[in-house]
Write a protein that binds this DNA or RNA. Structure first.
Lengths: 120, 120
DNA sequence: CCGAGTACCTGGCATTGTCAAGTAGTAGGT
DNA sequence: ACCTACTACTTGACAATGCCAGGTACTCGG
C-alpha cells in the first residue's frame, strides 16, 4: 500500500521522472502512465501526465511525433532533446541535493518528548 | 553551491520539515528559518515559512504561544501537537516511499543514447 | 449498436512556494 | 531626536503544477 500519497510531494518530481523515462527510451503518454504505475506510482493520473508532457514539449525538452496504431488512435511518441537531457541532469542534481538534506532530518531519532508522568 | 534550487521540489516537503523541527523542539518562525538555513536550505524565504506555520496551526498540527523578547518584538513559539506528530509520521512515510521510487530511477545508468556519428 | 480498452486533450480547482511590501520592537551611533 | 540595522511577524498578488471530471475518437468483440 502506498502510504497516503500526498500530491504536493510529487510537484516538480513528475516532470523529472518523465524526462528520465523519455531519455531512457521514446514513449507515448498512455505508455508513460503505465511505466510510472509499474514503478510504484499507482496514483498518477492521466490528467497530470498529459499536461506535463505538453509542457515539456513547449519548453523544448522533448519532441514528439505521431505514429498510427492498429489497436486504437494514433500515439504521440515523445523523446528527449539535448535541452531535455541537460534539464534532466540539473533536475536530478536538485533532487539529490534536496534529498540529502531532507532525508537525514526525517530519519534521525526524535529526542524523548516530555512525558507528563515523569519529571527530572 | 546549491544546484539551482527548484521551488516546486519543496512543495509539501517544507511543512514536513517544519513539523519535524517543531517536534524536535519548540521554536519560533524566525528561528525556524535559521535552523532550515543551517540544514543547507539557504534559499528558503520567510515568506514561505510564516504562511506554512500559520497553515499548520490552523490545521491543528502545531500550537503557538507568544513570548516577549528583549532583543526585538515578541516571538511566537510553535510546538507540535499529537495530531502534528501523527501527520509527521504519515508524511515521513509518504516521503520515504516516494524517494524509494524516485531515487533508483534517477540514478540508474542511462542506456547509450544514439550517437549521430555512429550507426548500426 | 454498444461496451470496453486504447489514446489523447482540456477547463476549472486547490495547494503552496516566492516576491515584495508593510508593521514594530530594540539597540547603537550621530 | 533621528537614522540604521537587526529582530520578528504578517499579508497580498502571483505562478507553477497536480488532480478531477469530462470530452473526443479509434478498434474490436458481442
Amino acid at each position: 500500500m502506498t502510504p497516503t500519497h500526498d500530491p504536493q510531494l510529487l510537484k516538480g518530481v513528475l516532470s523529472l521522472l518523465l524526462l528520465r523515462l523519455l531519455a531512457e527510451r521514446e514513449s507515448y503518454g498512455y505508455e508513460v502512465v503505465q511505466r510510472l504505475r509499474e514503478l510504484g506510482l499507482t496514483d498518477i493520473s492521466e490528467g497530470s501526465v498529459y499536461p506535463a508532457l505538453a509542457r515539456l514539449e513547449r519548453e523544448g525538452r522533448v519532441e514528439a511525433r505521431l505514429v498510427a496504431s492498429r489497436s486504437g488512435p494514433a500515439r504521440k511518441y515523445y523523446r528527449s532533446t539535448a535541452a531535455g537531457t541537460q534539464a534532466l541532469a540539473e533536475g536530478t542534481a536538485s533532487w539529490l541535493s534536496l534529498a540529502e538534506v531532507v532525508h537525514p532530518v526525517l530519519v534521525r531519532r526524535l529526542p524523548d518528548p516530555p512525558t507528563s508522568t515523569e519529571d527530572t
